[in-house]
Design a protein around this nucleic acid. Structure first.
Ligand code: ZN
Ligand code: ZN
Ligand code: ZN
Ligand code: ZN
Lengths: 158, 158
DNA sequence: TTGAAAATGAAAACCAGTTTCAGTTACGAG
DNA sequence: CTCGTAACTGAAACTGGTTTTCATTTTCAA
């Protein structure tokens, strides 16, 4: 555990830097997918077998309250987490494409031209119209991914 | 229960029109907010005390599979449902502003012009780049509503 | 070094949602 | 209008993710 770049923010808020939290943060930092609490637990256990699932949840909540992780619901009945760009400079803000057939989630950061600009304008428009101060947003497109389009349509709403 | 305008779609798919389903549909039709399964259950029970929560869940799932209701997660740990515009002509497609302090959810249908442009361009961009066929989307802005901005900031991430 | 506040892990509790199953109902074929 | 059957129902048990409880341990500023 060498990179201590973000621990200051944690200490400043009165939270303590523990071995468990270092491990969880490291796992999140290295992940390039959205992890569930349970997936983090498995990974953490292999490094520190005594760690408890409760600690995973508590740490994720702390990081969420600090605004360091995003928490997503892709309709699987459990949350998924990822460090956001306030924490990791390599993690760029992105949106999601969720396949309704295979449940795969595609992140995309390479927004179509003008998308970023349009979002900025939309946010300021919302602020003007509704007096609502936007902090974050979630944009998810649901549909059928390229691979699934090749397969035969099975039952369901798809 | 007079309005039977949408029951044909249900029958056509091999589902039966039962008294319970009529009640649930009627509750959804009259609601002007997003209801949770439990809230629907309370309302339904006052009309038909014998109704079971299981039936609420099963009916909502059926309606979701038929594409008649939208299912949302606003981070409360339970789903919320509403009839969409395929079912109710008065219900227009909308996006959400979720207040992080008071948890109120504001629907808005009068998008700022840039927002409509954003959606159109993004969907066609996604189709071109990823071969992803978009069916629906969810756009939620999280922040602080007008009323809460007047109040003092308490602890938390806000 | 040390003490108070914070964090930990195990176990139990919690709770939205699902499954099971025996009895009931809708509804189309006849 | 029967009738048979597939669909539907409600109660109860169950599931699985998340939270709470509590006794013990750890962090870290003074
Ligand atoms: Zn964005
Ligand atoms: Zn797919
Ligand atoms: Zn939209
Ligand atoms: Zn508010």
């Amino acid at each position: 555990m060498k990179t201590s770049f973000s621990y200051e923010g944690i200490k400043k808020k009165g939270y303590k830097v523990t071995r468990q939290r270092e491990i969880i943060l490291d796992i999140l930092r290295k992940a390039n997918v959205h992890l569930s609490a349970d997936e983090i637990y498995i990974k953490a256990k292999s490094r520190s077998p005594g760690i408890g699932l409760t600690t995973i949840y508590r740490t994720l909540e702390m990081l969420y309250n600090l605004g360091y992780v995003n928490k997503y619901d892709f309709g699987e009945g459990r949350a998924r987490y990822e460090l956001n760009d306030t924490m990791v400079e390599t993690c760029k803000h992105h949106h999601h494409l969720v396949c309704l057939r295979c449940n795969r989630v595609i992140d995309y950061t390479d927004f179509v031209p003008q998308e970023t600009e349009l979002i900025t304008k939309t946010i300021s428009g919302i602020s003007r119209k509704y007096g609502f101060k936007v902090q974050t947003h979630i944009i998810q497109f649901y549909g059928i991914c390229k691979e699934c389009q090749k397969r035969k349509n099975k039952n369901g709403r798809l």
